[in-house]
Design a protein around this nucleic acid. Structure first.
Lengths: 208, 208
DNA sequence: CGGTTTATTTGTCGTTCGATAAACAAAGGA
DNA sequence: TCCTTTGTTTATCGAACGACAAATAAACCG
């Protein structure tokens, strides 16, 4: 039961990356199938045969985006030993990603389709769902800090703290989009982390 | 030299507000002239006679937006007695504006056209320029705090502090867009203000 | 009143949009 | 080899896009 029928003349993964580049630069509605056909060198009919529809292609592109550009911040959250270090490293990894010279200076998840035509409501909610996952991931990391003993549950609440740093992440993309440099983002991150010790003092090591 | 020619059958200011509502909800590219004609009850040809083009109409809409929804945060910056109170009140006024029940839950300046088709580059830069004005306004208010003596120039730099709070403002819009409540935004603001005393300690009153 | 000016109505321009239908081509299976 | 399966090519679909031309209508001026 090997491959049946005529084989593909292009690599879908390569096409997906090329589509990613376009959607990243121009957003969902700003990218046309004509643009995609030209950038990939594939006729639009073949794009439909392979990916189904523009919306479906975009969803697959976002999956690829999540496993590539989304990975460094997620890894920072995962691998840093304390909640504080994890948040700090995540912010810095985000700043790194959104100031790369070879890519648009913002997070695609945030700016590819925040508003748009009524007919594309489903796509916007799809992205909103992924953004909500960001918040959840950050919240989970803070909870792990409490479990690990490197963070005392702050009076403001873990949820508030998680939402605060999510807000900073999202604001950073607008800043980078508007031309802020990596150094300027670093300053913003420094300010954002200054809130930490007030909000979430390190646990006293009594008994530990 | 009174009115010459056939008088208008509609009020341009009313039409501008109706156009504002649409652009606010759907963004620049997501709003079509057909949508605008239907919402205003004006034929598209009359829209062109009165406003010139879609781009020109949008620029006038943004001017209206700035003097209406943009005013409360700006007033907060202007009228609060100290830099700290000004920033705090501005953040709260922003949260109020982006959670009004009768309007979209985000700042139009930030989300109406962050990305899009190549042909609309000028509109995006127009909005980016207005966002830069936000940053400048905040920076100026901090500088006034130094002049007024309620703020010592922070080691992080006034620019860094201004950019930090601009980042928070912009992040709040993404949060509200994604369904965050007014109360949740208030928690974020509390966290954001927690950084203040670490970053910008109040001046000692020696000699004052 | 006619003449000028400006706005509205009506219809449509050429382009682009996302999406397919139909015909053809290249592979494996029997 | 012929059939089935799948992908590609080519052409195009109907709708929507921003924008405008021409004809008509309503005001002021003289």
């Amino acid at each position: 039961m090997a491959t049946r029928g005529r084989p593909r003349t292009f690599d879908p993964d390569t096409a997906l990356r090329q589509a990613l580049d376009l959607f990243w630069e121009r957003g969902y509605e700003g990218t046309s199938l004509n643009d995609l056909a030209q950038a990939t060198g594939i006729a639009s009919a073949s794009i439909y045969t392979c990916f189904g529809s523009k919306e479906n292609l975009f969803r697959k592109v976002m999956a690829l985006y999540g496993t590539t550009s989304g990975e460094p911040p997620r890894r920072a959250l995962r691998e840093q030993p304390t909640a504080r270090a994890a948040i700090h490293a995540m912010l810095r990894a985000t700043a790194d990603e959104i100031t790369r010279p070879d890519a648009p200076h913002y997070c695609m998840l945030i700016l590819a389709a925040p508003t748009g035509a009524v007919e594309n409501h489903a796509i916007r909610e799809f992205l909103a769902g992924l953004r909500h996952d960001q918040l959840t991931t950050i919240k989970d990391r803070l909870a792990r800090g409490v479990t690990d003993g490197d963070l005392t549950a702050p009076p403001a609440g873990l949820d508030a703290l998680a939402r605060y740093y999510t807000t900073v992440v999202q604001g950073l993309s607008v800043q980078a989009r508007d031309g802020a440099t990596r150094a300027e983002l670093e300053e913003v991150i420094t300010c954002a982390m200054a809130a930490w010790d007030t909000l979430a003092p390190a646990p006293s090591h009594i008994g530990g």
